[in-house]
Design a protein around this nucleic acid. Structure first.
Lengths: 298, 298
DNA sequence: TCCAGGCGGATCGTTTTCGCACCACCCTTG
DNA sequence: CAAGGGTGGTGCGAAAACGATCCGCCTGGA
């Protein structure tokens, strides 16, 4: 009899294209993957991969197997979510994924409140890199900013939050200096991968020279605080920062709408329901802030 | 991440109803099953079984999981058969299941011929107990006696063989003695679980006393040879045995039709095709014998 | 009533599996 | 042309899984 878990290894190699990448995604040593694939092929009596110097490529037989293996993976995921959906106890895990700035500058206090309110729920905030996949149960709740509602995955259930606006900000000290008539070089601070947004135009304060490029939003904010120049920021970041102020003569711009996303079976969980209801209330209170309606006074 | 192989263990326990029976069907120690089920429940964070003194019974959650687990098993079987169906090499396994008397008294010489003809094919004859399940790939070819064609599984491909008749036999010596006018007590020899078939009536020779019960066909034949009485036997057994003769005044009866059964993907295999074609030819030659048209002369 | 045989569970050596380090190889890149 | 990062493959010691065995429990039949 073949070991069903070998099929998981097979899928990882088929997707990763190499034994080592599969090992990484599986969280095991690459030698283990090597052995499991060998065992799998031996027990099936057929070669699933061509062993090239560049990696493992599926053979014709492997392609046929892949189709059914994917099906098993889908069933397995379904099985897990179904069990998790039945879980009505408070004690247990709850994973939330969201964009880093949302966590850092807006919602972390609320997460903390929720965690204090329900100490038995093991919260895990996934705000590291990119979008976690809800369908694969990498997270239970996703908080996303969506510009076009039609881009929402259809298999997810969405709870609409407030609209989110952004503006153009600069150091409050520099703004004071500019008003006092002592201008100094003012540059665009941009995230390298994004550049200057289309809607961002200089207001009364003019920029000079080339843009100043940073890689992440944290550095962007620090640079702005230092008075290096002006930059686009979500209102909930810029307005809440006492060291920053909106650049005179600039307008706000709609970033998108905040959505609370959950998935089929897991939504029934008591933990998920508690969290989404809690957060939904909090988001309602944040509506003016994220819409840019409560700017810090000059 | 859950170990997919645990789902196999889960299925075995769900079907067997106890850890020990599952262990037996899986061919492992029951402690292993215990550990795997424990691990499975722990990783899913839910109880799949109620642990009763009488065994493991599925919980409500377990029932829901079972549904998807069965689906995974189906996919896994499909995967195996698909790979096996691609296998066009001669070297490899070939498992044949059939009723014990067919193997012992009719087809074993043909199996031997086939094995000699194709020494690279590892033949395995499953004539032990009950029907192996072709759909589960417990065997590649099944040879079955079917009375009603409608009882054939629809998912299997059948190759019709000759009709199979049975008759009533007794010891040739006893028959001679009876003819010489020296009667002695004559009993029905029956397989315990079957009893005397409806169609079996005494002929010119009369039975006395209670039936003589045996548990298997081998003992049945030996008892008949010993002159204990008369018994029903397939013609290919009774007519081929020089120590047995038909009871005068009794008729033959249709047992059923021999079928060569194969399953979807595996049928494409060269080994399976070779075997079914070979056996089909041989069965054609056996048609008169199994139909009772070549009785041994008195 | 007692005994046998089914069950789940725990313990303890032993076998198997795994992770680590290392090798040879290929390719790109500086 | 050499160096670095990628690939698959291999040997060895540690760790985890396993099988054998024993135990206590319950049930059904003698």
């Amino acid at each position: 009899m073949i070991d069903w878990d070998d099929i998981r290894y097979f899928l990882a190699v088929a997707r990763g294209g190499s034994v080592r990448s599969a090992a990484q995604s599986l969280g095991v040593n690459h030698a283990t993957v090597l052995r499991r694939i060998g065992q799998f092929e031996e027990r099936l009596g057929a070669q699933m991969f061509e062993k090239l110097p560049s990696g493992y490529r599926l053979t014709e037989a492997g392609e046929e197997v892949l189709e059914l293996a994917e099906q098993m993976r889908a069933t397995s995921h379904q099985l897990e979510t179904r069990v998790f959906g039945r879980d009505q106890t408070l004690r247990g895990p709850l994973r939330v994924t969201l964009a880093p700035p949302l966590a850092t500058h807006l919602l972390m206090p609320d997460f903390a409140d929720f965690a204090r309110l329900h100490p038995e729920i093991e919260m895990e905030i996934l705000s590291s890199g990119e979008l976690a996949n809800l369908t694969n149960r990498e997270a239970d709740v996703a908080i996303r900013v969506v510009y076009d509602r039609k881009t929402l995955p259809l298999n997810l259930h969405g709870l609409k939050g407030p609209d989110l606006f952004g503006g153009i900000y600069m150091s409050r000290d520099r703004l004071a200096a500019w008003r006092a008539g002592t201008p100094a070089p003012m540059r665009w601070i941009v995230i390298s991968m994004h550049g200057v947004p289309d809607w961002a135009h200089e207001g009364e304060v003019r920029t000079t020279g080339v843009p100043f490029r940073v890689t992440d939003i944290a550095a962007q904010i620090v640079a702005a605080r230092q008075g290096l120049g002006m930059t686009t920021l979500p209102c909930f970041v810029g307005d809440a920062d006492p060291l920053l102020a909106r650049v005179p003569g600039t307008a706000l711009h709609l970033y998108g709408t905040l959505w609370l996303l959950t998935q089929g079976e897991t939504r029934k969980t008591k933990r998920v329901r508690l969290f989404t209801e809690f957060l939904s209330r909090r988001l309602g209170a944040y509506a003016p802030l994220v819409a840019g309606l409560s700017p810090s006074r000059d």
